[in-house]
Design a protein around this nucleic acid. Structure first.
Length: 433
DNA sequence: AGCCTTTGACCAGCG
DNA sequence: TCGCTGGTCAAAGGC
């Protein structure tokens, strides 16, 4: 919360031969539980085949992404093009908004966690076969071209590419990603590829035009796996985008160490985040709730749950300890309840606000300097979306806006959820029509 | 020893 | 055809 410094992610678009984009339905079919196509096209716009790096905030629409879940068939490009203007309006206006609760302010750190949720969500949405792309698939789309059969894009929200407080998923699976971690460590935090469940070997680095930072190329370390990814960085050197190419033909490496509580994990957490950070994470939750205005408790709950994210897998116990020490629970009883831990298994999607979200896009909306991140509930046939964007007052807060109504119950919590925080066992539905 | 990153060179696509 | 650019290779070196 301390730093409200501007971080603008001018989204570059990697050049791509769009001649053979894999159809999104194919991706969707392979995907775990993507919701039905219905609403994403608003973020879809033709993408120029040439790399376009924007050096500053821009409303240029060249860099747009589209969710694979939106594509049900073939003629996507044209269809998308048709919907762009309409649905973009929808995003900005309130038409078709079933329920739009008061936006909730969350901190930069929280947004960072939220943003990372997208990454983790995708990772954990891997089906048993695990031969899908490990991240939410944000396909590039270009009119008159087919979808590229192999590329997918993972865009990193500004908060993800944020400061050192940025929650790095890779840190959560230390053993499994040891090589990756080593890489990250060897090249410094500024060059850390985000962890997505697979192990990667860097095979190249290229200074791309218009970017201060080089683009890194990685290959899956599995000897038979053709998957590659390239990591692009924003002008501030933080990871801004990851583009995947190909499909893993092998299961996702299983983390040897469970992310459950335990001395080891706790030690690890402390090492990675520092006790201060962990405490502040929790404290921020409370503070954020305190500063929220005009927010229904349910929305607040939703927002606060979003704060919980995957950290909870790690610091469940720790939080309890922290709470006891800091008196958080006592100081903000109701809030503490809202911020109760949402535990998910490592195989499941990560719940931020009790529901499972898939980040499906990011764009700079008109009138805003910073990009807005789009998330969609992954529930079956559920069209609920939420938008996370930086507050226009540049206060460093982020605004989360929910849209739609869940068509399903909140996913059941698993693991030690109740044990970790019994108060969180009865989540509220954050959306009301 | 094995696996990794680094980095310059090479290649291919495109305008 | 040529130059630019992105993507990949592979040798060298580090851990």
């Amino acid at each position: 919360m301390q730093d409200a410094k501007k971080i603008e992610i001018a989204k570059p678009m990697a050049a791509r031969p769009f001649s053979n984009f894999r159809s999104i339905p194919d991706l969707l079919a392979r995907g775990a539980s993507s919701p039905p196509a219905s609403s994403f096209p608003e973020e879809t716009v033709a993408i120029k085949p040439k790399t376009t790096r924007l050096k500053s905030s821009s409303h240029d629409s060249a860099a747009r992404v589209v969710s694979p879940a939106d594509d049900e068939s073939e003629s996507v490009p044209s269809r998308l093009s048709e919907k762009v203007s309409v649905t973009c309006m929808r995003a900005d206006s309130e038409s078709n908004v079933l329920y739009k609760p008061t936006a909730k302010f969350i901190s930069r750190a929280t947004a960072s966690l939220l943003a990372n949720l997208g990454n983790l969500d995708a990772v954990h949405q891997q089906p048993a076969t695990n031969n899908q792309l490990p991240v939410q698939v944000l396909e590039q789309v270009k009119p008159n071209y087919n979808y590229h059969p192999t590329y997918s894009r993972q865009r990193i929200s500004p908060s993800q590419s944020d400061t050192k407080q940025t929650y790095e998923p890779s840190n959560l699976v230390p053993q499994n990603v040891e090589p990756d971690m080593r890489t990250q460590q060897s090249i410094g935090s500024g060059d850390r590829p985000s962890y997505d469940g697979y192990n990667w070997r860097k095979y190249g680095q290229k200074q791309v035009k218009g970017s201060e930072y080089p683009r890194s190329y990685y290959k899956c370390t599995d000897p038979t796996c053709p998957v590659k990814k390239k990591v692009e960085r924003s002008f501030d050197g933080q990871i801004a985008e990851i583009v995947y190419k190909g499909e893993h033909n092998h299961p996702q490496p299983q983390p040897p160490m469970r992310l459950s509580s335990g001395p080891q994990e706790q030690a690890f957490v402390a090492e990675e985040y520092g006790s201060e950070t962990l405490n502040s994470l929790w404290s921020n939750c409370v503070l954020e709730m305190s500063v929220s205005t005009g927010t229904s408790s349910q929305v607040g709950r939703a927002g606060s749950r979003a704060v919980s994210v995957d950290h909870e897998k790690l610091d469940c116990k720790r939080r309890k300890n922290d709470d006891q020490v800091s008196g958080v629970n006592g100081a903000a009883e109701g809030v503490a309840e809202r911020h109760s831990v949402t535990h998910t298994s490592t195989e499941s999607e990560i719940s931020g606000d009790g529901y499972h979200w898939r980040k499906y896009g990011q764009k700079v909306v008109k009138g805003n300097t910073y990009p807005r991140s789009y998330y969609r509930c992954t529930g079956p046939k559920c069209n609920v979306r939420k938008y996370v964007e930086r507050a226009s007052d540049d206060s460093g807060y982020f605004v989360t806006t929910y849209e739609g109504k869940h068509t399903h119950e909140m996913p059941a919590r698993t693991m030690n959820f109740a044990a970790c925080d019994p108060d969180a066992a009865a989540p509220h539905h954050p959306f009301i029509t």
